[in-house]
């Protein structure tokens, strides 16, 4: 698997796959295949994919640790940035298409509707993470501070799930699935952290730190 993940074409292929939902939505919209209310379908479709990419990005580290596919870590930044991109396009589609730049209504809704407030908070919190995703920024911040900053994603994930949960009218199946996945992904990290603490309590030789070449893990 590691060899496959390191293949020359593997990363470009994943990149194209990540773009596919966006292209698919736009294509269906242009072809009149988004139903009677295409604007709502587009905004919600983008929101669904933003949430999915957030979960996918959060799955990289647990998957890598569980399987030993160390090559996965090379994909984490790209998947995280795709999550950010879908979040931003989701927000822009709401502002520019659904509300059509009706700023008084937009600001009023952000302040008044808790689910929109929480969604906006998630966007704002994601911004410093996207801004510090370059190698240069990681070096400037230093691994330790970068890692602490990027723990914000543990707050952003729940915000996104709650944002979706609160806007659903009745059928909570989807948000419950997302919440379950998020709980599993965050729970994994809690267990991993506890295990490390437990191992440290029993003194053991520390392995030399060797993780300064790729973005350090926030977990």
């Amino acid at each position: 698997m590691n060899r496959l993940l390191r293949h020359r074409w593997a990363k470009p292929l994943v990149f194209v796959l990540c773009l596919a939902p966006l292209v698919w939505l736009i294509w269906r919209g242009a072809a009149g295949m988004l139903g009677a209310n295409p604007i709502e379908a587009l905004v919600r479709g983008l929101g669904d994919w933003a949430l999915r990419f957030l979960l996918i990005a959060l799955a990289v580290t647990p998957l890598r640790q569980a399987t030993g596919w160390s090559a996965l870590s090379a994909y984490r930044r790209m998947l995280g940035l795709f999550a950010f991109a879908y979040v931003v396009i989701h927000l822009l589609s709401w502002v520019g298409i659904d509300q059509f730049f009706d700023w008084p209504t937009i600001t009023g809704e952000i302040a008044k509707r808790l689910y929109i407030t929480l969604g906006m908070a998630a966007v704002v919190l994601l911004m410093p993470l996207a801004a510090t995703s370059t190698d240069a920024m990681i070096r400037r911040l230093g691994g330790r501070r970068w890692r602490v900053l990027h723990r914000l994603v543990y707050l952003i994930g729940p915000l996104a799930v709650i944002h979706h949960w609160m806007m659903v009218k009745k059928d909570l199946t989807q948000p419950m699935i997302h919440a379950g996945m998020l709980a599993a992904l965050l729970g994994w990290r809690v267990v991993a952290a506890l295990r490390i603490r437990h191992n440290r309590a029993v003194p053991s030789p520390e392995p030399p730190c060797a993780s300064s070449c790729s973005p350090p893990s926030p977990s």
Binding site: A36, N37, I39, E40, Q99, F100, D102, T105, G108, E109, K112, R113, Y115, M166, M167
Partner: peptide
Amino acid sequence: VDHPRWSQAKERRIGEFLK
């Protein structure tokens, strides 16, 4: 009178772009 989760001041007529 707003719905607790959204405004009722405007509506999207199906088939129209602006509310």
